[in-house]
Amino acid sequence: MAIKFPSLEFFQELARRMNANPAAFEKLGFCDTVMGMRVLGKNPHLYSLTFDVFECSDVRELSSPEGAGFDFVLEAPLALWKEMFESIQKTGHPAPAYTLNSLSHVGDRMKVVYDEPEGHDKFYRFMATIQAFVDQAADLDIEWA
């Protein structure tokens, strides 16, 4: 069954897959961060993902980042999220230009929004886990908004 993007169900499904696959994520190590993923567009959406030890323990949609305690938020237009996930779906991993780091680095097609440098650095400290988390969408049947 197709899962709509963006939707709470989409990120819940990625969390379910992560928690059902402990071997892969335990190998990558502890991951402790609260991050946001913001989809910009006519109907913007903001999702909060809590990574806790080896699991994604909480996923929710928020109307505002206030009080969410985000370490950092990845922010991009819907079209860019779509390009990224489509790239992941081609081979199971993103093409070089579509890794989370590449998208958010030079040119800032994807913005990393943060207050504290340590929160910002968590994006890099847990990069392999966060990339593996989004790569799980490789075989999802996605219905684009």
Binding site: P96, T99, K122, A128
Partner: peptide, 28 residues
């Protein structure tokens, strides 16, 4: 981060994804 961005192939990208995690921890 820049080296991951300009890496010639996914092999080098993986390499930089892994080293940047350690480096960010040292910075913290």
């Amino acid at each position: 981060r820049s080296s991951e961005y300009i890496s010639p192939t996914p092999v080098e990208q993986r390499m930089f994804q892994l080293v940047m995690q350690d480096e960010a921890r040292h910075v913290s």
